[in-house]
């Protein structure tokens, strides 16, 4: 589990507190510029933020880099690549913090991570020769390969086609079932019902959090997103069983 209180980043995040238990699938929602990416980066210790972030009662940012990398994995919104490392090598980077002295990465879970994101056939291809969505899956697979119990994903489903987007959600559900905490930012409010908890950010502050059906009221939708909710017959897309 991970708990943060009074998280504050100058000009970007105002006093955000949250508590996510183990085995929890959570989403950060909010319009552009609301602070979703900032929150995820702050939780991952990737940018200076005031406040506390606790993991099992310990201040997360005081845990040394290598140990922290075994606890928490983060996937950014950017999935640009300048150098043509093969897909498998990039995914293997997820094991950086798991190397044994003199033996390189332990290689654990790499094939599984490749398979989980449908990358097995692409595993020898340079990442520079992938589409944006494929590259996004490579970075997600790298985070999965870490085996970290806390997964922070910044808009993992953007750039993905419908099927791979749904697969990401299903995979996150599987991680949750294994006791992981998965927190992802999201733009598609219609997917919110898949999550245990949602946090709604607006102008850097958390305006509501809780189960999606309690949080996403017509008032919140109008105030935060400037949209009116109307129940209608919708096209429901799911993975074939």
């Amino acid at each position: 589990m991970i708990a943060a209180s009074g998280l504050r980043v100058e000009g970007r995040l105002r006093d955000v507190s949250l508590e996510l238990p183990a085995g929890c699938l959570a989403a950060v929602l909010g319009p552009n510029g609301a602070g979703k990416s900032t929150l995820l980066q702050a939780l991952a210790g990737l940018l200076p933020a005031e406040g506390e972030i606790r993991w099992r009662g310990e201040e997360l940012r005081r845990i040394p880099f290598l140990d922290r990398a075994r606890i928490l994995a983060w996937v950014g919104q950017e999935s640009h690549a300048d150098f043509g490392f093969p897909v498998r090598e990039v995914v293997a980077q997820g094991r950086y913090a798991h190397r044994e002295a003199g033996h390189g990465e332990d290689g654990h879970g790499i094939e599984e991570a490749l398979a989980a994101f449908d990358l097995t056939d692409l595993s020898d291809r340079p990442v520079t020769r992938l589409s944006g969505g494929e590259r996004r899956r490579v970075f997600l697979a790298r985070a999965l390969a870490t085996g970290a119990p806390i997964q922070l994903w910044d808009e993992p489903t953007s750039h993905l086609d419908v099927r791979h987007g749904l697969e990401v959600l299903e995979l996150a559900n599987g991680l949750k079932a294994q006791g992981a905490t998965v927190l992802m930012s999201l733009h598609d409010l219609r997917a919110a019902h898949c999550f245990d908890r949602v946090l709604v950010l607006h102008k850097g502050a958390c305006v509501a959090q809780g189960p999606p059906d309690e949080v996403l009221t017509p008032e919140v939708l109008l105030e935060v997103f400037g949209v009116k909710a109307r129940l209608a017959q919708d096209l429901i897309l799911e993975l074939p069983r």
Binding site: Q41, L46, F65, A69, A73, W74, F83, Q93, A97
Partner: peptide
């Protein structure tokens, strides 16, 4: 190798 794939990502994977 990790740095070449992005600074923040490298840091999150344990690189100082």
């Amino acid at each position: 190798n990790l740095l070449a794939m992005g600074e923040l990502g490298a840091q999150s994977l344990g690189v100082n």
